[in-house]
């Protein structure tokens, strides 16, 4: 289980890094989204993997799962969601202002007429 989760986080991060190094804004936005998925999963796992255990104190509980990472990841999800929305709008604005979707605003050959 741990190995699978670690693999998933690793693949998500690798994909995110690869995409955010691309030259067009859309892959960059996708890359940032993948990175934020990876980090959310990572934060969540930092409370250790536990199945079927309550996060709050109850009678006759066998053990507990750590509730704090769940609260943290909730905050992180909200923030990354807002940021993604913002960066999409900004990318659209850049597309409109610069006339192309390159991150450096370069004019491609066919644009130059």
């Amino acid at each position: 289980m741990e190995a699978l989760i670690a693999l998933v986080i690793g693949v998500l991060t690798a994909g995110g890094v690869f995409l955010s190094l691309r030259g067009q804004t859309f892959p960059v936005v996708l890359g940032l989204t993948l990175l934020s998925y990876a980090v959310n999963l990572f934060l969540f796992i930092m409370g250790r993997l536990a199945i079927g255990l309550p996060p709050v104190i109850t009678d006759n509980a066998q053990g507990y799962t750590d509730p704090l990472p769940q609260a943290l990841v909730l905050t992180a999800i909200v923030i990354s969601f807002g940021m993604t929305a913002f960066v999409i709008v900004l990318a659209l604005k850049a597309r409109a202002e610069l006339g192309n979707d390159h991150v450096d605003g370069l004019q491609s050959e066919e644009d130059r007429d």
Binding site: S20, V28, L90, A91, K93, A94, E97, L98, V103
Partner: peptide, 10 residues
């Protein structure tokens, strides 16, 4: 400003 802003945000 938009171009510099995009880099800054990303």
């Amino acid at each position: 400003r938009v171009k510099a802003g995009l880099h800054y945000v990303v």
